[in-house]
Design a protein around this nucleic acid. Sequence first.
DNA 1: AGATAGTGTTGCGTATTATGCAACATGTTG
DNA 2: CAACATGTTGCATAATACGCAACACTATCT
Lengths: 251, 251
Amino acid sequence: MKSIEKAVSALQLLVDSGGELRVGDTSRHLKVTRSSASRLLASLAGGGLLEQDPATQRYRAGILAVQLAASFHRNFDLVEQAQKEMEELARKTEHTVWLGVLSGAEVVVLKTARGSQPIQFTVEPGHRLPAHAAAMGKALLAVKSDAEIKNLFATPAEPATKRTVASVDDLMREIAMSRLRGYSVSNQELFEGVKSISVAFEDQHKGMNIAISVSYPLFAFESASDQPVVDALLLFAHDFGTRIGDKRWIK
Amino acid sequence: MKSIEKAVSALQLLVDSGGELRVGDTSRHLKVTRSSASRLLASLAGGGLLEQDPATQRYRAGILAVQLAASFHRNFDLVEQAQKEMEELARKTEHTVWLGVLSGAEVVVLKTARGSQPIQFTVEPGHRLPAHAAAMGKALLAVKSDAEIKNLFATPAEPATKRTVASVDDLMREIAMSRLRGYSVSNQELFEGVKSISVAFEDQHKGMNIAISVSYPLFAFESASDQPVVDALLLFAHDFGTRIGDKRWIK
DNA sequence: AGATAGTGTTGCGTATTATGCAACATGTTG
DNA sequence: CAACATGTTGCATAATACGCAACACTATCT
């Protein structure tokens, strides 16, 4: 179904380009003529999935997209259920807590809960981060088989900082370590000065995985250890995992 | 672009059927064979716009839908700006305040702010309501021309309660009255015992309209008047309308 | 167990349709 | 005002989406 794959690819491009799409860019990205891109976007807009700004002629997401996302959250109750406990965890650790899922080789943010620290790492729902550099990404990858991971990173991703894992082998070692520990770590691999730890959960009923991550600026612990944050996250994982019936967390 | 229109139609069906889609239902709705429907949905899922439940084989909204919706809200800054003031209005009136847009002959809920009353009207983002029966619908329709409205309701919609406007002429009269008042009213036209009032705002730059509505159970005012709520809404409209540069509210 | 019916997913030939090419319309820039 | 960039249509052709089967699988009967 080629034309639909192109349409979805255009939607992906819309997300990548920050929410606005021009016919010309779309045509270049899809390698079709402007006429085809124009008709493609017009069709998507006709059904309300996109809408065209009358002033700039650019295309944006439409109301149908909002409704689709609403039905996603309605079904995906893990996300809703996690909400309250995330806020509790953010209060306890004083740092930013966020929830996401894996989409290809990237992590997509679905929910956030802000801590009380004056300076904190911020992410917003809808943001995407490279999985190999984020603690959450490693936690979610650790659920998958080695073969699947190697397949995902067949084309090497570019490092975000100096500390980002450079090779697939390094990534595999990191993930193996995450499996042993039960949680994964990203020490300034995505942003300088920011450390994150994360745990993943499995919804065997729906066959989906989510992860929770706590992120904090390193200088918050220059003198002390961050062990209290790790402990709080592990307690959270035990409670939440038990409640949703995730075997790996029931002890 | 027939096949894309079909795809969008399938997505619309997904929203209408509460978030889950089966191949068979899709094929009936689109009047194609199951094979075509199967390939269609598989293509949408391939790009992440949908995803297939491995247990039931049914299709649900995917992560890309969430990202699209996030970009929608990011662009549509009116929605973001209204958020805080809606909460203030909900606190002041003690009733449910919600924000929505017009989509065809329906109203789509985008944001809600709950009041403090123990019993209150509840709507959730993503929900859709018939425009002709909701105060918000009338407020949004009042911005349009009579010709557009008549065109939208060429095929008469079915009434939700005994008090719902029965004919297009009645609706036009109601809308004319809304234009005079500056706000619109739905007195048990959508739900028995629930009254709503609403005001619309125009974003001339983006060419989109939003509306804010306050909804409350009638018995909350069985002895007294609901004038305080109307006044609070009008004050809100003046403040917010002035701030976003809506000519109709600058006095 | 076996039979029956319902479901979702492939292979294949044909008919539908999506595409590129052009021309046109409409801003935008120098 | 020319020159350019961008988005939208008409038309002939090449691409592909479609229906028809057949198959795999599950659930529900007798």
